[in-house]
Design a protein around this nucleic acid. Structure first.
Lengths: 188, 188
DNA sequence: CCGTCAAGTCACCGACTGTTGACTTGGAGG
DNA sequence: CCTCCAAGTCAACAGTCGGTGACTTGACGG
């Protein structure tokens, strides 16, 4: 059961990626140093640049993931929150990839662009399927509520929001989800 | 009409503060250098540290301001958005002080604490006056929506949200404001 | 006209950053 | 056992950062 003094290349690569995700998620892009990431894994900083050419490339890889949003076509408006919120908690409380991106997008245009890309590629298609009209506006509004909730709960850690149970939170936002996707205004 | 080669001390101090606000608001704390700020004003970097002892002190001063929230006591729930949204636009589209704080709070615990402080000191008291019960939870939820809207519109610049008029935006969020402050759930 | 004091400049320090290239070491295959 | 190549280390570079302290310059009062 002796730990091997030398890992396989994919194993160290994965370990570095995990450490990077964790650091980026808790500290933000700029305040993370490659030496810190290397130190977390117990490896020389040169290894980080060996496997991920540059810091930005490392971040790009760390901030890529699948939101796993379900198909909302045919879901009853009343059930939207019940379907979406479990994914919300899974994504934001899981590995810190998404938090990294959120933190970084606050101070980097490049990261902001990645966030928009992710929205366009995964969030918008899922939400648009449940919108009665004006899918872009409705999806964006709902997205802003989700983003704000994540920012307040997981970044700022606003005490009342941190203290709320998942069920209570889902109950609170359910009417909002319904309103943004199916409520007025329908006319111009 | 010759420009004076030498300013008064308060004038340079104010100029530096303005430049810092602008930089912090558009680039974020970490990516702003004191040399940039000094350069914007056309002054030696040493002047910045002369008037604001340290970079963090400069930021602290740049991120302090008054939201100017009105008294919501007695305001009809239907009119909440009509009263609050003008302040929203004024604050986020005015001088970049608040944007600085939002950007910085994504990657700095110190800035995050300042944001919480500001919420507790100005946002919470105003919103709590209009909440029918559970003021902390209701105000936090509404705050998260406001924060998310600002983040999506002014930081990420989500195209559909940027394109929406102020009136349309107010109309969309009005039912949400009403729900968070006066809607269910009332029971535990 | 000149001394004085604040406003502003200058050169520089030490620390830290991302990144590089040459070196060393370990372990599996012949 | 020895060889060899990948896995990992080491020292160092070039650049930038925040911050310091001694110096210079300008305007104004006597």
């Amino acid at each position: 059961m002796t730990a091997p003094r030398r890992r396989s290349a994919p194993a160290t690569r994965a370990a570095i990626l995990d450490a990077a995700r964790e650091r980026f998620g808790t500290t933000g892009y700029d305040r993370v140093t490659m030496r810190q990431v290397a130190g977390d894994v117990g490896v020389d900083p040169a290894m980080v640049v060996r496997y991920f050419k540059t810091k930005e490339d490392l971040f790009t890889e760390a901030a890529r993931f699948d939101l796993g949003l379900p198909d909302l076509d045919g879901v009853h408006p009343e059930d939207l929150a019940a379907v979406l919120m479990p994914r919300f908690f899974a994504v934001w409380e899981g590995d810190a990839g998404f938090l990294s991106l959120l933190r970084a997008s606050a101070s980097s245009d490049a990261a902001g662009a990645k966030m928009l890309e992710l929205f366009a590629g995964q969030v918008y298609p899922a939400l648009a399927a449940a919108a009665v009209d004006r899918p872009a506006e409705r999806a964006s509004l709902l997205g802003s509520q989700i983003l704000g909730l994540a920012f307040a709960r997981y970044v700022l850690k606003v005490p009342p929001l941190v203290a709320m149970s998942r069920d209570d939170l889902s109950e609170w936002v359910a009417p909002v989800f319904r309103h943004y996707l199916t409520g007025p205004p329908t006319v111009c």
